[in-house]
């Protein structure tokens, strides 16, 4: 079945991205890996839904895409301003962000 092939490919890709997530020297490598992992997850949910013959999973996939985007922006905002809610402007720190 074609979907099994796609699922296998996405799982391999997710494992590789996970290695980068653990190894990644800087913070931004990790954020990028998390974002990419989220995109892989959206695809995986969709393909698994088709594989099971239950395309209703697409609702969950869309929800995951929304949460992934908001989460990435929230992580970046937190590491720039050290706060999630309203922030006073603080000059960005010139560190490597490990």
């Amino acid at each position: 079945m074609i979907y099994a092939f796609a699922i296998l490919a996405i799982l391999i890709a997710m494992a590789l991205v996970l290695v980068r997530l653990i190894k990644g020297p800087t913070l931004y490598d990790r954020v990028l890996a998390v974002n990419s992992f989220g995109t892989h997850t959206v695809l995986l949910i969709g393909v698994v839904g088709f594989w099971n013959g239950r395309p209703d999973f697409l609702d969950i996939a869309l929800l995951y895409a929304l949460i992934n985007f908001v989460g990435t922006i929230a992580i970046l905002k937190f590491f720039r301003y050290r706060a999630i809610g309203d922030v006073m402007w603080t000059p960005p720190q010139q560190d490597e962000g490990r």
């Binding site: 074609i2 979907y3 092939f5 796609a6 490919a9 996405i10 391999i12 890709a13 997710m14 590789l16 991205v17 290695v19 980068r20 990028l32 890996a33 990419s36 892989h40 695809l43």
Partner: peptide, 16 residues
């Protein structure tokens, strides 16, 4: 779908 899976894996290889 096969070429899409190929690009997904290639992207992950590139990230590594």
């Amino acid at each position: 779908i096969i070429s899409g899976s190929f690009f997904v894996v290639v992207g992950a290889i590139g990230m590594l």
